[in-house]
Computed example of a mutant assay.
Amino acid sequence: MPHGNPVTFFQGPARLGLSTALGVFRAGFVLVGNVPTKDGTSPTAGSLLVINRNGSQIAEWMPAAAKINGPWDLTIFDAGDHAKVFVSNVLDGTVTRLDVSIDDDGVHLNRATKIASGYTFRSDPSALVLGPTGLAYDPQRDVLYVASTADNEIFAVSGAGSSQHDGSKGVLIYADNNHLRGPLGMALGPNGHLFVANGDAVNADPKHPSEIVEFTPQGRFVAQFSIDPAVDGPFGIAFGQPKHGFVHFAAVDDNTNTVTVWRLPFEDADH
Rank of each mutant, 00 (worst) to 15 (best):
H248M: 13
V247I: 14
D105W: 05
L48P: 01
T256A: 10
R122Q: 14
V95L: 04
N255K: 14
P13A: 13
F225D: 09
V252F: 12
G170F: 12
F235G: 09
T120F: 10
V213Y: 01
D270F: 11
K169Q: 12
P13M: 04
K67T: 08
T133E: 04
A201V: 08
D205H: 03
G17Y: 01
N177A: 09
V213Q: 01
A269Q: 06
P217N: 03
D81P: 02
R220S: 11
F29W: 07
L144S: 11
N177W: 05
G106I: 10
D228R: 10
E153Q: 14
P229I: 06
H208W: 06
R26Y: 12
T256F: 09
F9S: 07
S19P: 06
P139G: 04
S88P: 10
G199H: 04
T113R: 09
G159M: 10
S56L: 15
T256R: 08
P36H: 13
S126R: 15
N178Q: 15
G199K: 12
A64N: 14
F266S: 01
P217L: 06
G189I: 13
A59Y: 06
G170W: 02
R220A: 13
S56N: 13
G199W: 02
P139N: 09
V87E: 01
F266G: 01
A230L: 09
T44N: 03
G70T: 13
N52T: 01
A269K: 10
